[in-house]
């Protein structure tokens, strides 16, 4: 059961990674990073039960808390950028 969940999570991560690399807009990538972060939290929880080490759940907690800071930093970055070039359209990725 845990194996099935792990494989499903890994597949989701691979798909999110594909979206992060392909783009096309910056927001796709931000969402993809966020999604991979969430999947990392889930995967860590599942693996810590798979290994029988529930004390490793601490790490999943750290990720859940720290991911939020990254998202806020991205928001702040875009807010500052919007002042710097007001009226400019958003960067469209590579």
């Amino acid at each position: 059961m845990f194996y099935a969940v792990t494989i499903a999570l890994l597949a989701t991560m691979a798909l999110a990674l594909a979206r992060a690399i392909m783009g096309p807009t910056v927001y796709d990538r931000v969402l993809a990073v966020n999604m991979i972060g969430t999947k990392t939290v889930l995967l860590m929880s599942v693996i810590s039960f798979l290994f029988g080490r529930p004390d490793f759940l601490d790490l999943a907690l750290v990720y859940a808390l720290i991911n939020f800071i990254g998202v806020l930093a991205v928001l702040e970055f875009f807010r500052v950028r919007a002042y710097d070039r007001s009226g400019d359209s958003e960067a469209d990725g590579s």
Binding site: L17, V26, I36, Y63, G93
Partner: peptide, 20 residues
């Protein structure tokens, strides 16, 4: 990645995968 913001986002993913 030519766009540096994209590179930053991808390096965040890199770090998550490495930690896993």
């Amino acid at each position: 990645a030519g766009n540096l913001f994209v590179a930053v986002m991808l390096s965040g993913i890199f770090s998550l995968l490495l930690a896993l």
